[in-house]
Design a protein around this nucleic acid. Sequence first.
DNA 1: TTGTAGGCGTTATCAA
DNA 2: TTGATAACGCCTACAA
Lengths: 364, 364
Amino acid sequence: MVTDQRARGGRRRATLADVAREAGVSASTASLAVNSSGPVSAATRERVLAAARRLGYLGPDPLARSLRRGRSGVVAVVVSERLGYAFSDPMMATLLDGLAEEIGAAGGSLLLVPVHRSSGGTDGTGGNGGGGTGLGGLAMDAAVLLDCGVRAADLLPGLLARGVTVVTIDGPLDLGVPNVGIDDEGGTRALVEHLAGLGHHDVGVVTLPLGAPVDDGTAPGVPRRRTAAARAALVALTGHPGRFVTADRNTVEEGERAAGALLDAPVPPTALVAQSDVLALGCLRAASARGLDVPGDVSVAGFDGVDLHLLEGTRLTTVEQPTARKGQVAAQLVLAALAGDRPDDVRLPITLRIGTTTGPSPER
Amino acid sequence: MVTDQRARGGRRRATLADVAREAGVSASTASLAVNSSGPVSAATRERVLAAARRLGYLGPDPLARSLRRGRSGVVAVVVSERLGYAFSDPMMATLLDGLAEEIGAAGGSLLLVPVHRSSGGTDGTGGNGGGGTGLGGLAMDAAVLLDCGVRAADLLPGLLARGVTVVTIDGPLDLGVPNVGIDDEGGTRALVEHLAGLGHHDVGVVTLPLGAPVDDGTAPGVPRRRTAAARAALVALTGHPGRFVTADRNTVEEGERAAGALLDAPVPPTALVAQSDVLALGCLRAASARGLDVPGDVSVAGFDGVDLHLLEGTRLTTVEQPTARKGQVAAQLVLAALAGDRPDDVRLPITLRIGTTTGPSPER
DNA sequence: TTGTAGGCGTTATCAA
DNA sequence: TTGATAACGCCTACAA
């Protein structure tokens, strides 16, 4: 990754110039023939192709072509911190799948870029001495920013300055770039309504990591949006504000820990709302570990509509969102923007899915 | 991804030449100053840096630099078919995490390349007309091939011809490139020994997708290696060959289906060995759906040592492998090979972990 | 310590 | 239909 000798072993790969010479044509003609991207007589094309075969020419060098064309065909997906966390979230897998499908179909490819909190600032001169990576030294046509975990806003100026097309998934919304998202507030409210309707007055909320407090003018990310919506809905519908515990990461373990903190209170809440299905699974485990019946003793709800592979015919009550579609749409926004359009934000529909993990409040 | 106008909106990004002109030095001096990679007087450097700031120079263009240096810093990870499948395997997340950590630390980045069965042949002239992706048109220094699903061997010639450094994970082993793997046979044998010791004579095996039969001379992949080892060990230790069902994909659903086929036999086996923990989870669900007690009625074992987040304090009996380490080692092999070394294969240690899902055979 | 020259492999443009 | 020319933006011998 550091060394840069080109002279590897034997003789170097054949280039288009070699092919042209071998075929007795000019480089430009050879280019046209090889790419079938211009008027070339059938005879010449055949001659060039034969020469290419003879020389073992492997097609245009992607780097050179990209430099010349000003396009690399690479779409970066910026994920938070460690890839392991990113992928331990089942959503991410689905999202990336949708993204890859569309980008791949358009001839592009996906670059996975984990951003460590430090290496964000690609704003200045970028004179980062040694080959530090950090978004600065990566060739990309576009970047997809996933709200979860990364402060998208931090990276944005640097990317835009470099002429990179940017699309966000799940906001923030006021960044001035196209965004795909869902109605987080509406989904949260629906969940609270459902629980309130079951007679729950004392609801615990396990939130996703909230990230840095929003001191600048930026709109808050998913966790804060859902949190605010939950608080508002709880006050309005149950008369109580609810109790909030924040998970440090979106993992089952953290969900279990956070839920444990709530359930171990002198008077535990009668319902737990987790901001993700992964966290909700942790809630289920916390309840199970304490011998609590779900939903008899405590109701549990999630968010996302991920397939959790619960045993025993349990179905989590959750807000289902079209995650694969989200990835596809993000890709479409990228492609549209790359084509010069200025696409609008997209808000995808969600559904409240009532499962077997929520029931009447035992207080009733 | 297709259009190629460079003339976007305003005026183009400042280049190093611009900076040099602005600073009144030559381009080469500017290069040295910006990269701090040569002898430059403090005064000149300051002047150059100031000019860069003034012009909003954002650092060397990655594409141009790569072309010049002959290195892109990109390591491709070739995954099978759809990314969604790839990531639905918890192993992959961990593996990629380890890989990304090491590659990232060395200043490289990870390109995710899903390979559809068709687009494999990058051997010929590659004159694939339009911008079809398929590994051919991607700039990469190295590729990591994951056996699972993709016939690594198919891609190898093309990659090698292009001068791409290749490393495989989980074989096949006779490809002539460095490989990281584990003792699949030994692990399988240990599992069978464990079950035989518990008195099981009639064992069902749920295998991973086997892929195409090995008609050429190539060594078989993980599923076939584990399958052969299981068959041999079962014959040797139980006197019976065992019954084999193949899952079409490495998913919980497929595991459940395959296990169901075994459990619905007139005389079901007393133990199920799945070739992955994901499949094993499917086995557990199949048993649960039929009202069978595990391990009372049927024992279940897996392979991998993934955290399955089972409820109820259940711990799967499985063969634990150091998955993150596998990714790290693969990265180290890549880096070593890129540095000109010719690293040896690495075989990582595994451990039989006995959980609560295996017990004495009910036949006893 | 700085500048000059040349080229990495392609492709767009224009003229022939 | 083909060919010469000129970049794309950078880096590295080598010379001054």
